[in-house]
Structure formats: C-alpha cells, structure tokens
Design a protein around this nucleic acid. Structure first.
Lengths: 337, 337
DNA sequence: GCAAAAATGTAGAACGCTACACGTAGAACA
DNA sequence: TGTTCTACGTGTAGCGTTCTACATTTTTGC
C-alpha cells in the first residue's frame, strides 16, 4: 500500500560538514555536543561549515546513541487556558538550550506516555496526572520525570512541582468568610485519583472548621463534562438550603457556575459568591469578574523544566518545588451586603 | 557536565522478539509494517512474542530508515479552545492507525517546523499558519504538509483544509442585518499575512455592499494581545457614531468585546450586537450567549489528518477540502428592538 | 510432470549520529 | 633527557530499525 513519495532534497549530514571543515566526523560531533577536548580554532571552523551548509543534526540518529534534545509535555486537556501559562514557563526555561518541547494531550490514559518514551524523549513533564505514585515511579524508572500537580511524594523517584493546594483552598474559604459569606460550598471534581483534589478538599474542610463553619461543609463533585457540571451546579443552587458561596475546582467550572446562576437570575455576589482556581485570563472579563486563586502557571512550568533538565543531566535524588498561591479578588466574591 | 543517569531497564529490541519467535529479524520487521510476504502462521507467532515480551518499536530507529509514525501539529497558540476541537478531529482520524500526533506551539515563527523536521515527523499539519505560499511550498518540498486555514492554493504543493471564510463572514453580516442591525463593524486581526483574514474581510465587504450598507463598512484591526483588543473595542464603542453591531474575528475577541461593552454599561444586543467566530464552548454560557459562526473544527482536524496520511502514502497532487460554515444564533445578536 | 510464477522467508548493508578507545604532540616536572 | 600529564583529534563500532537482493519453497499452468 505504501507508495514512494516524491524525491525530496536529501539532508546535509555530519559527514558533509566534517569534510567541508576538513576535520573528522568525531570532531564535528564534539562541537555539536559541547564535549570536552575541542580547541577554539576547530570549533570556529566547524561552526562556520555548519552555518554555511545549513546543517541540522537529525534527532532520530542522535537518539539512537545519545539524547534527542526533546522534552515531552503531557497535558490532561487542551481546553483550559491555564495550561497555556504553564507552557509559557516551559518555553522560558528552554530558551538558550538545545531542547525543544513537544506537547501531547493524554487522550487514552497512559498510552501517550508510552508513545513519548518510544519517541525517545529525553524527559517528561506530566501535568495534572491522574496516576498513582506507583505508576509514576514505574515511568520514572524508564525516563526522567517531573510531575506538576501531584502531592504524594513519598518514595517518589521523580520530581514534583506544585502549588500549595491545601493553602489555596484555605485562602479561598478565608477570603469568602472575610467578605461575610458563611455557607461556602465546594464544587469539586469527580475523578479517579488525584492528590490535588484531596489537598484542596482537605484545605476546604480544615478552614471551614477553623472558621467555625464546620456544619456548613458541603462538597459536591462533578465530572469534567459540561453537562454534568451544569446539572450539579443547578441542583446545588436550587437546593432547599442554598449556599451563599461556591469555591470551584477550576475557573472553567466557575464560569459554568456563573452561567447557571445567571440563568437562574441569581445575582453575583449578592445571592451567590463564586471563587475559581487558576486565575485564567478570562477571569478579568467584565461578564465574569471572577475572584480566583492564582497558582502562577508560568512559575510551575519554568521550575518543572529546570528540574527536568537537571534530572536528565544526572541528578538522582528527588526535589519538590512548591509555589505559594494567592487570592486575586474580583467582584464575584465581594461583600455579601 | 553530563553525568551518567541511573541505569534504566534496557528496552526489548526487535532482535529479541525475533529470537523468541524463532524467526529472522526481517520477518518481525515485516509483521510490524504490514509488509507483503508474511504468512498467517508467521504473523501469529511474531505477534504472540511481541505481546509476551511487551515489545514496542523504537521510533528513532525506525526513523533512520523509514517512517516514525509521528505527525506534527503546529498550533499558533494554546489559549483558544477552538484548537481543542481540531485536535479531537485529528485524534479521531488517528484511531486504529499506527500514527501518533505530537503538538507544538509556534513560539518563534517557523523554527518549530524545522524542529519537527529534525525530529523526523512523517508529516505536518499547520494550523492557521502566518506564512506565504512560497514559504509553505518550501516546507512541502521537505515534508508532507497540510495547512488548515490557508486560502491561497495557487501552485500549492500541499493540501489545505478550510472553512469557507468568505461565506462565514457573509453569513454573519446577513444574520445581523436580518435582525435589524445596520451599522455593522468588523473587528479584525492585525497580523502580518493571513489569507483567512483577507477572505473574512472580503466577505464582510461584499455582503455589506449587497445589503445596501456599503457606506457603513468599518473594519478596525487589533493585534491578538488582550490590552490592544480592549483598547480598540473601547475606541470603537465610544466613537461618535457607534456601530450597532460588531462582527469579531474570533470568539475570544468577541468575549473581550462583550467585556468592554459591559464595562461601558451598554446592553447586548440592544445597544450593540456581537457575533463571534468558531462557536467555542464558552459561547453557550449565559454570561456570553454569543452568536457565532461554526466552522466545525472537528471536521477540519479529521480531514486534514486524512489528507496528510494519504500524502504520506504517496499522493502528490494537491487536494483542498472546504467546510461550509453556519450561523449558531444566540442572544448576543437578537433583534435590535 | 515440469517449467514458470508466486509466495514466503532470510542475510546483511545501510540510516546519521555518539562515544569509546586510542594516537599524537607539546608542556611540565624531575 | 626522559617521563608523565594534559589537551586535542581521529577511527570505528555500534544504536534498532528498514529494505533490497536473494534463496527457498509452494503453487499454478499446461
């Protein structure tokens, strides 16, 4: 079935660079890799030839012996603009390095990770992985790994970068309480495994208790799907004893909450206050004016990438970086009245 | 500087599969590639061994001789959820094939394309490329290429998949006119090159003229940046002779328009009607209720991928697939009164 | 039955690069 | 002067696949 493609211009190889520069192939390779034992004169000669011939090393060939200079980013989905912030951070960290990031979106569980290992990524950044520690350790045994958004670091053979989700949740609740809201519900995510969810829910519970609102604790969970979120919110807002505030798992969920509230002709924040998480760009829009917890995705991405490169370069003990979240207050959580 | 990483379990290679199955390496390779000349018995034997050993072919090694079974998707940015729709389509097309998609976000112009060629992608899908035809042809000479959102197909040595942007713009204007809006402005994008922008602006002009509103033609352009869009919209809405409707380049821009209008205490659609493009999920939200032109990203992604695989398999003449857009009417463009 | 054709399997040379193991030359030291 | 270092280059064996060419067996045609 496989026919021949039209002939394409063949690539410049390391051999041609070597012969053009009048040096050995090994010498060119050394220059390429910044390896030890190269004189300035030789480096200059080789670099001139590379430039002249417009040489670009072929990643597959490099990968077969050494590294591919490619990092894999695994996103849980593409709809949340928060991930774009992380991506910005990753790219900032990659500036002035030879590395390139390739993204994938984990459609079917962990098959993407396998695909990336098959493709010889030098390392992986998993963003919000729904995986157990054991499973992550398995992966880490095969490829340098950093997880963003995974709190279980016991015996972890990989690095993690997190915002303090427990604190984030506490800040949200505290902020709402300070603004006079009492019956704070939490709209959480119904997902198989997630240490992030656990932390947020824990923070919510602890802070509610601390605020003397232990009896008002109310966690409802919805799957990521649009319909389900709306149904869940609607049920919550129409319930006999409606909360006066909702702390949402994500800005995206919060926007849906705003939508449902608007449909029910409840006014925000008078009838119902809303707080999101991630401080996405859309929070700023006048139709949302959503108070949100900022976990600075850019920093998360930057640090994760930094750690990953360190790990590729040989570090074997685990490091765990934590960002302190902060409240960005907007109208959606203003004083009740 | 490069230290040794902790020893990782070595991979299963084709050789081990061959020896386990008691056949030659070449035979295993044939099975892997569905090549001609393999008996059922042999195939079964080999597949059993592959399963048993959990063998996965290494893409780098394959790439050195044949293909990597990897397709590269190049997105212009990560913030627009419309791209998630395209991605869904791509994945649908990849189901039951050996191919895997890897995404990249084009930060610095075309350097990502080079990086993907270096990494031996079998083909590329460029989404909304800001490139000239000549430049795209250059790329197409080096790698199978499909562009989504590029209308200049003259002498194109690549395939394209588009929605009919000219029609889309006409539909938007027509819809607004039918609902009694007359002074329809267009909020367009200030970008270096884009045949998509040209088509939309052309459609807008033509339809305005056809509706007898030639004198009301008013195109303002803003760069993608948040601040600039808001400034532009604000200027437009505060101008002496304010339009009564805005047709926006993108839902994202439309949401910003809604934001500015809300801030100015203009009501939608009474004071100002708004129409977007892409029919993103957020359009449905009650705080937006945004009328939008649907160009079915899923179909775009699916078709692009289909064409790309055909092209990889040897097709050399160009094909151009066009999707017909449709209006999805919501409150933001309802009758003026 | 026998030649020709088709089907099935194998050997082994690439693919472009890295990294190990060396070779050489000059400097430093005694 | 010889010996030991150090710095700098080179030759070349793979890395894990694919694919061409060929060898062998089976089927077909008459």
């Amino acid at each position: 079935m496989t026919k021949k493609s039209p002939a394409r211009t063949p690539r410049i190889t390391i051999r041609e660079v070597a012969s053009d520069a009048g040096v050995s192939v090994a010498a060119v390779s050394k220059v390429l890799r910044d390896a030890y034992g190269v004189s300035e004169a030789l480096r200059a000669k080789v670099q001139a030839s590379m430039e002249k011939l417009n040489y670009r090393p072929l990643a597959s060939a490099r990968g077969l012996r050494g590294r591919t200079y490619t990092l894999g980013l695994v996103f849980p989905d593409l709809r949340n603009p928060f991930f774009a912030d992380i991506f910005v951070g990753v790219n900032a960290a990659l500036e002035r390095t030879q590395y390139q990031a390739m993204q994938g979106v984990s459609v079917s569980a962990s098959s993407l990770v396998e695909a990336m290992i098959d493709r010889q990524m030098d390392g992986l950044v998993l963003i919000g992985p729904n995986e157990t520690n054991a499973r992550l350790n398995d992966i880490a045994d095969r490829i340098p790994l950093v997880a963003i958004g995974h709190h279980d670091i016991e015996e972890a053979r990989f690095d993690t970068v997190n915002n303090d989700d427990q604190l984030g949740a506490r800040l949200a609740v505290r902020h709402l309480c300070q603004n006079g809201h009492k019956k704070v519900a939490m709209l959480s995510l119904a997902a198989p495994v997630s240490t992030v969810i656990n932390q947020r829910e824990l923070g919510y519970r602890l802070e509610m208790t601390e605020q003397g609102l232990g009896t008002a604790i109310n966690i409802v969970r919805a799957p990521q799907v649009l319909r389900d979120v709306q149904l869940t919110v609607r049920r919550l807002l129409e319930s006999r004893d409606r909360p006066d505030a909702i702390f949402c798992w994500t800005d995206l969920m919060a926007f849906e909450a705003i939508s449902v509230a608007t449909e029910l002709e409840l006014s925000i924040p008078q009838d119902i206050a809303i707080v999101g998480y991630d401080n996405t760009v859309f929070c700023e829009f006048a139709q949302n004016r959503l108070t949100s917890i900022d976990q600075s995705g850019e920093v998360l991405g930057l640090q994760a990438t930094r750690l990953l490169i360190e790990r590729i370069d040989g570090r074997s003990h685990s490091e765990h970086f934590v960002v302190t979240p902060r409240v960005v207050a907007r109208a959606s959580s203003a004083k009740a009245g």
